[in-house]
């Protein structure tokens, strides 16, 4: 929409633009700069072109990390979105229960990432952790430092525990915004519970669901702190996701060039996949109506 020109607004936006420039654009450009050069220390750089990109894209190590990353994101989305929806649908819509539920739901979201990691690192430990010890006591071989499956399970349960609330809160906000007349009309039309969900709740919630999926995808795709704290990427490389791998490469091995190239590729993948999600979900069938007019 074409608005009246107002230069004051520019000044209001300026600080944010500056902040973004310093925190995002300039570091990103630096990374791009590193990704096309090689260095032998002493601040000596020379041009290598797309060498690092080709190396990264061909490396088995990158492929493996990428696959793990996709698996992880897909799994947590497949669990958190339906689970979050289900919880939101079963939450009370009025009364005292609402605030109790909302506070309970918000709790995990208030805990910092590294603390969440630490909690689960201890919780799942075989020797002193409640979960790990109990499971082993029941005869189940559960040790996330040795068993890849156990490490994955720990990370996924942790993420579900930490982030399903976000999906719940978003869905709940979408649900309570549906005018009561829709439910009344559906009852009168003799619609089943499933039909109410399928034809009223889901279409009206599609916008917030899109936001939930996007947020959860981007966040899980870039997960670092928790696996770093809990498993350190192990056992072996079983939970070495892209970000963990990237840090290993950049800080552990000090391979600045390849790490930079990998960062750029990583960045592009996140943007591309987010865009794909957005396009698919805003296609005609998914778009909610413009409201009562």
């Amino acid at each position: 929409m074409q608005k009246t020109h107002d230069h004051k607004a520019l000044w209001l936006v300026a600080p944010a633009l500056l902040l973004v420039a310093f925190t995002a654009v300039i570091p990103l450009m630096t990374v791009v700069n590193y990704s096309v050069q090689d260095t032998f220390g002493n601040n000596q750089f020379f041009w290598v072109g797309t060498e690092w990109y080709r190396e990264i894209l061909r490396s088995d190590r990158f492929h493996a990390a990428f696959l793990r990353q996709i698996m992880f994101s897909a799994t947590i989305l497949a669990i958190e979105i339906p689970l979050g929806l289900a919880i939101a649908l079963s939450m009370p819509k009025k009364g005292l229960g609402v605030s109790v539920c909302l506070v309970l739901m918000a709790l995990p979201l208030l805990i910092p990432w590294n603390v969440v990691g630490t909690i689960w690192q201890i919780f799942a430990r075989v020797d002193i952790g409640l979960l790990g010890h109990t499971l082993n006591g029941l005869g189940i071989d559960f040790n996330y430092t040795q068993n890849a499956g156990a490490a994955w399970a720990t990370l996924i349960i942790m993420d579900v525990w930490h982030w399903t609330s976000l999906v719940v809160l978003l869905c709940y906000a979408g649900l309570v915004a549906i005018p009561p007349a829709y439910y009344q009309a559906a009852r009168i039309d003799g619609a089943s519970r499933w039909a109410v969900f399928r034809y009223i709740e889901l279409p009206k919630m599609s916008r917030v669901l899109l936001i939930a999926v996007l947020l959860r995808f981007m966040d899980s795709f870039m997960i670092y702190t928790e696996p770093f704290v809990v498993t350190g990427g192990g056992p072996g490389n079983a939970t070495t996701f892209l970000s963990v791998d990237l840090v290993k490469m950049a800080i552990g091995q000090f391979d600045l060039g390849p790490a930079a190239a990998m960062s750029v590729i990583y960045f592009l993948i996140v943007i591309l996949v987010s865009w794909a999600f957005y396009t698919i979900m805003t296609r005609e069938d998914f778009e909610p109506s413009g409201g009562a007019r």
Binding site: M1, Q2, K3, T4, H5, D6
Partner: peptide, 21 residues
């Protein structure tokens, strides 16, 4: 003045106010 016309002029009390917010 919430929107700006694509073309044309708005005059108030003899003064052009087309772009005035």
């Amino acid at each position: 003045g919430l929107d700006r016309p694509t073309s044309g002029e708005i005059v108030m009390g003899g003064q052009t106010i087309t772009g005035v917010p």
